[in-house]
Design a protein around this nucleic acid. Structure first.
Lengths: 211, 211
DNA sequence: ATTAGCAGTGAACATAGGAACACTATAATG
DNA sequence: CATTATAGTGTTCCTATGTTCACTGCTAAT
């Protein structure tokens, strides 16, 4: 019947399920690709085709956003979920400290799902410093981070470099990683030693409160 | 709150609901039209727009099959939740139009009370234009407005000037009111005729979502 | 009797998004 | 070692679908 799925296929199936639950309509191939850092829609398509062949998905050929998940059980659980997600707010990302250590959690923030889309493991982070002002991210702002290990060029990311946490724009060029501040007063950082560099996640939202 | 629907609008809303239940994804305008013998997509679109305006539907502009039905039940849940407030989001503040006219309401946003403090009559406003980029407010951002008639120097306000709505920094000096953009490409506005000038409210928050 | 709101036509337009192709790369397997 | 399955790139193509516009017809209300 239903064949075993590869890890990747399972991940993608889960994502589609989440996306539909939250948005009420299925994602495009490009949206799926974006989420998993798959650049070519063809890469995504093959996963989808596999899922269809194995009986987990349905779609209407040639039409956009027509993926539907075949799963009798979950079909019953039509989402009565409300529109709120509560995410932890992390502060003072100390050098070398595990970012999710209990001690770091400063509070929580409830936000509208419309802002997150299907990404639910996000957390908030208070911005220190002014290195991103030209991107409209100011000191004291609360940025929403989607945890991920990879990044695409142009993404604003939070990363650990030499045990220090920074937020910068990510640029990979000719095999070299640059961390680019959005502020004329700071210079781009060249990542010399990739062993000492870890991407924590990507900035997907900014909240600011004037008081 | 929710305005009354016409018979036609109710029929169409029902059809969309059924379609989604059956297929797992929403219909296109042409599919709706086919069902109701409406030949032109424009005819359909006007019904959809009406349903959106009246708060029964959501969609992602310009994207196919992105209609989603706004569930009344879940809407109640959110308003009841302890530290959540639901505020209306207003768009396209047309010249001379009462800003709260039903027609303007584009949707709603649920936000954490921690962001609002005690101010509860706030509303959201989609930012158009780039006149405040140096204050970290970009085009497309959602600003939270606390309605008030007065402003203090340095406040970022939304005001009606000659029946046009603008967002600027407020400055009162020697009896003259200046509206100061935060962008070198724009010049400060001197308010000549105070009869033609009304403060709508003050910006108390900014939300941005990268997607 | 004139305005305003609702409903529909038919056509033109721009583009989001699915499909296809030729390649590359890495494991695992027999 | 050759083979097969999985995973991804970059590009091109085509069309389904949302948007906009100028016009028509009906009804109800001022």
């Amino acid at each position: 019947m239903k064949t075993q799925l590869t890890d990747r296929q399972q991940e993608i199936l889960n994502f589609i399920q989440e996306y539909v639950d939250f948005n009420g309509f299925p994602p495009t191939y490009r949206e799926i690709g974006k989420r998993f850092n798959i650049v070519s829609t063809f890469g995504v398509k093959r996963h989808i085709d596999a899922l269809i062949k194995k009986g987990y998905l349905n779609n209407e050929s040639n039409l956009s956003r027509t993926l539907s998940i075949i799963d009798i059980k979950s079909r019953h659980v039509t989402t009565l979920t409300n529109n709120i997600i509560e995410i932890p707010v992390v502060g003072r990302v100390a050098a070398g400290m595990p970012i999710f250590a209990e001690e770091n959690i400063e509070g929580s923030l409830s936000i509208d799902k419309n802002f997150l889309g299907s990404r639910t493991e996000c957390f908030g982070l208070k911005v220190r410093g002014d290195s991103m002002i030209n991107a409209g991210i100011l000191e004291g702002d609360l940025v929403i981070i989607q945890p991920q290990k990879e990044a695409a060029n142009g993404d604003i990311i939070v990363a650990l470099l030499h045990d220090e946490a920074t937020m910068k724009k990510y640029l990979l060029e000719n095999g070299t990683i640059y961390l680019i501040p959005e502020n004329e007063n700071y210079k781009p950082i060249v990542v010399e030693n990739k062993e000492e560099f870890t991407i924590i996640g990507k900035v997907i939202g900014v909240f600011r409160s004037y008081n």
